[in-house]
Design a binder for these strands. Sequence first.
DNA 1: GTCTATAAAGTGATAGAC
DNA 2: GTCTATCACTTTATAGAC
Lengths: 228, 228
Amino acid sequence: MNKSPPPPRSAETRDALIASATHEFAARGFDSVSTREIAARAGANQALIGYHFGGKEGLYLAVFESMRVQIQSRLDPFIAAIELHLAAPSNASSIRKYRADCLERLLRMLDAMAALFADEASAPWSQLIVREQQNPSRAFDILYEGFMGRVLGALTALVRGIRPDGLDEADAGLLVVTCIGQVFAFRTARAGILRHLGWRTIGPDQLTAIRRRIRSNVTAMLLAKDGP
Amino acid sequence: MNKSPPPPRSAETRDALIASATHEFAARGFDSVSTREIAARAGANQALIGYHFGGKEGLYLAVFESMRVQIQSRLDPFIAAIELHLAAPSNASSIRKYRADCLERLLRMLDAMAALFADEASAPWSQLIVREQQNPSRAFDILYEGFMGRVLGALTALVRGIRPDGLDEADAGLLVVTCIGQVFAFRTARAGILRHLGWRTIGPDQLTAIRRRIRSNVTAMLLAKDGP
DNA sequence: GTCTATAAAGTGATAGAC
DNA sequence: GTCTATCACTTTATAGAC
């Protein structure tokens, strides 16, 4: 005789709960979602949230931890390349070439961010990032220490590489956040932007237009000689 | 003999409930706040929310309606001046002067927005605007039709005035939202930005630095001749 | 208009059977 | 591991006294 039939799988349940919670928390926020809804969407039992994650809050943190792992693995090669490039500027044949190179790396990173924040397809992650910035909890630390800080640091270093004139650390940081802000807006102000532009959604065509505009903006911002 | 002492005032209670709800909804979101908390902070009774607004949702809409009235009254003179200026470009002594004038008006508007979104003092309104863009409800229509649409329209017209070269309506719209996005970020990505810049808060000094940076950026973006 | 009291439905957590 | 059942609590809305 064989043992009793109840299906004893653990990892699958955990993953299903995290996937379900990612979607729900992103779309509606922590308090607006009940553990019953999350369990139902995952095809699991409500009591399993307690068993696997210790409770609703534990599940919330698990969602961010899972997200951090995935984003970090995609981002690490990019950041490592930038850090390497900055560490060895001697590779460039000339200063002029080096600066153009820094700029192109910055633009590529913003292209990638546009895919994350503007594109409808990757909504959950960007929504979670936005929500967590509005009401930072322990989950925000996971994001910042996981990848956000390193990205900001790398981009700031690139900006200083592009603008060797007197651009202090603080202003370089501001330049970076205003660059990213342009991309970020397509997530945080999406409703207003779609309405203003008469778009129904942000699909491939719209994403291309956004990227062209941001490339143009950022290039102008960085190559401008500002001053009084 | 006089009548019974219970204080029969209505407008004060209404206003106190709206003020309390504005603060709470902005800080924590619709679902995370209970009607009891709102009433307590207003020094009113929980049942009065039903009496005055028909329920929690009615109070939420009343918050946005109150906000629309206040923002609109502050904004209307600015927008009217812009529309007038655009309608009568003959005032300008030269095309060059006219364009510089448009740019300055745009920059002033962004300055005002920086005060709204960056400055900690005016947090509730900007928080409500952000939250409502994440999950648009009927309240978003109040905002968009109340002032957001007109502001975006006026700024887009200004941008086209600054750039008489072939800049189509769609790209002018994108230019505007990327300008505003730079300001908006200081609310929507505040947690990450403060951490990156090593700021504790956004006070007068920080606001000045932000405005200088954005003026510089936007000027470069708009005066650049882009394109291959 | 404002109050108290409460109804009706929901919440997260958990004990205990299997 | 997964389930059912339930506890203890909170939620919004509302009936009815004043």
